[in-house]
Simulated assay, not measured.
Amino acid sequence: MTTVEHRRAPNGFNLVPPPGWDVIPLHTGTQEAMDRIVRKAVRQLPVGFPKDDIPKARLKLTQEMKKVVRRASAKGGMTLYLPTERLHGVALPVSIVASEPVEIPRVRPNSGPEAVLAALASETLGAEMRELDDTAALRSERDVPADAAQGVDVAHRQVEYFVPIPDSTPDQYLAFSFSALIAPGSDPAFYDTLVELFDAVMCTFRWSYS
């Protein structure tokens, strides 16, 4: 008798952010995470920072945090990763958003996720195939110019990974989006380094079955 192995889809994933980053869940526990990050930022204010200005700094940090969270949630985000400690004295203008699973119709009957990724690659600028935890994935990279009409306030470098969830029925996909704000006149090599950091983070990606 032949035994048929029934495989099950993962029920989550693990991603290891760099040191000095924090994770904000966008479904539950969001406010608690934001409060924790703001408290940490206030503790990191420079020595000699005027005590009378601390409430104003706390309010500004809270407002900025809420703006970032709203944007991530509006894009279907389920988890937000942010650097909350300075790197060599520099505050990194970057974020990573893991989005809700989405369903995409198959390219043709009986075609698998690989066919969907190939179709997307053919029409996505800067796309290339990668592999994450033994799963084929699509990576794309582009510079997005500032365009107020499109709701883009600041130019940014954007890198996205699109990953099919193995053995999901129907086929579902996760998206991981990295964004780095581009300051006018800045060195492009700096943003190349930030992109390398994101790619290194994505190398830590693992499916979870617990």
Rank of each mutant, 00 (worst) to 15 (best):
V159S: 05
Y191M: 04
P55H: 08
D153C: 07
L138H: 09
V152F: 07
E160N: 11
G89Y: 01
M1R: 07
Y191W: 08
G112T: 06
V23N: 01
L125R: 15
A9K: 14
A119M: 14
S73N: 09
D35G: 02
Y161A: 02
Q150P: 01
P18I: 05
P83A: 12
L82D: 08
F205D: 03
D192Q: 10
E32L: 07
A137C: 06
D134Y: 10
R106M: 03
A91Q: 10
V16D: 04
I24C: 03
S208L: 08
D192N: 11
Y191H: 13
I37S: 12
L59I: 03
F176Q: 00
S186A: 12
A146Q: 08
P93Y: 08
F176D: 00
K75V: 08
G77N: 02
V42T: 13
K60A: 09
T2Y: 04
R43K: 15
Q158L: 14
P18H: 07
V42R: 06
Y81K: 00
A189G: 04
A121C: 06
S111A: 14
K51E: 11
D35A: 14
G20A: 06
D22C: 12
F162M: 03
V47D: 15
A149K: 04
A41V: 06
H6A: 11
A200I: 02
V152W: 08
Q158T: 11
S99W: 00
M202P: 05
A91H: 04
P184K: 11
P17F: 10
R43I: 11
S168M: 12
R206C: 02
V68F: 01
V42I: 15
R206K: 07
R39L: 15
M65K: 02
S140K: 15
M34C: 07
I165Y: 09
A149I: 02
A119V: 03
V4I: 07
T28I: 08
L181Y: 05
G29T: 14
A98S: 13
V163Y: 06
H88V: 08
D153I: 11
A33K: 06
S99N: 13
D147C: 02
I165M: 07
F178Q: 02
F176Y: 01
I37H: 04
V68W: 01
R157C: 08
G20L: 05
G185W: 08
Y81H: 02
R139T: 05
M129I: 14
Q172G: 03
R157K: 13
I37M: 13
A41L: 13
T135G: 07
W21A: 11
D153H: 05
G89D: 04
Q63S: 09
L80F: 03
L92K: 00
P109Y: 02
V38E: 03
D171N: 03
L15I: 04
N110H: 09
P55E: 04
R39M: 14
S186N: 06
A74V: 06
W21G: 09
S179N: 15
T62R: 12
A146T: 02
S179A: 15
M1H: 06
E5N: 07
A180W: 06
H27A: 14
A121G: 09
A136S: 15
T204V: 04
W21H: 12
D52I: 11
W207Q: 04
T124D: 12
V16Q: 08
E196D: 10
M34K: 09
Q172V: 01
A127G: 09
S208C: 04
Y81F: 15
F190Y: 10
W207C: 05
A146W: 01
S99A: 14
